[in-house]
């Protein structure tokens, strides 16, 4: 088994389409709830978080000599992150199949799927990897 992260990605366009769709917050919770429950019932969901509205977020841009701090929304940046799930499944294809079942829709709405490498895959004699391992150990995140 490996861990995969399903990252919810949307754009301003997705959000606008959603706002004009008339879908209520309760309906969103119910749809997400059913999807999450199906993964819990299948024994594959390890973690899930949704992010607060991008307009309450801040972007730090490093393309200038000193980083530029911009309040959300992100100006010309179109890609927004909405939240993520962490799944415990044998292959990326399983993660893709779960992603297809997510109640996500609308123009520009996407889910990106990335494997989460284990810390065991990094050089274990590296000082910083050792420190990170210690932190993971003491905080139960190994």
């Amino acid at each position: 088994m490996s861990k995969y992260m399903l990252i919810m990605r949307q754009t301003d366009e997705t959000n606008a389409a959603f706002e004009s769709s008339g879908v209520s917050f309760e309906e969103v919770i119910a749809m997400m709830g059913r999807f999450n429950q199906s993964m819990i019932d299948a024994g594959v969901l390890l973690q899930a978080e949704g992010l607060d509205d991008a307009k309450n977020g801040v972007v730090v841009d490093y393309s200038t000599e000193t980083p530029t701090v911009t309040d959300g929304p992100y100006g010309e940046t179109k890609e927004l992150f909405g939240g993520f799930w962490v799944l415990d499944v044998p292959t990326i294809e399983d993660a893709v199949e779960w992603a297809k079942r997510a109640p996500l829709a609308g123009p520009g709405m996407k889910a990106e799927i990335r494997r989460i490498p284990s810390i065991d895959e990094f050089p274990q004699d590296n000082e910083w990897i050792r420190k990170e391992r210690e932190w993971r150990e003491t905080t139960g995140q190994l």
Partner: peptide
């Protein structure tokens, strides 16, 4: 075979749900 063990863990999770 580790995958087999992980499948057993998944089945146990499913059982605790059902």
């Amino acid at each position: 075979r580790h995958d087999l063990a992980r499948e057993a863990v998944r089945l146990a999770r499913v059982l605790t749900r059902l």
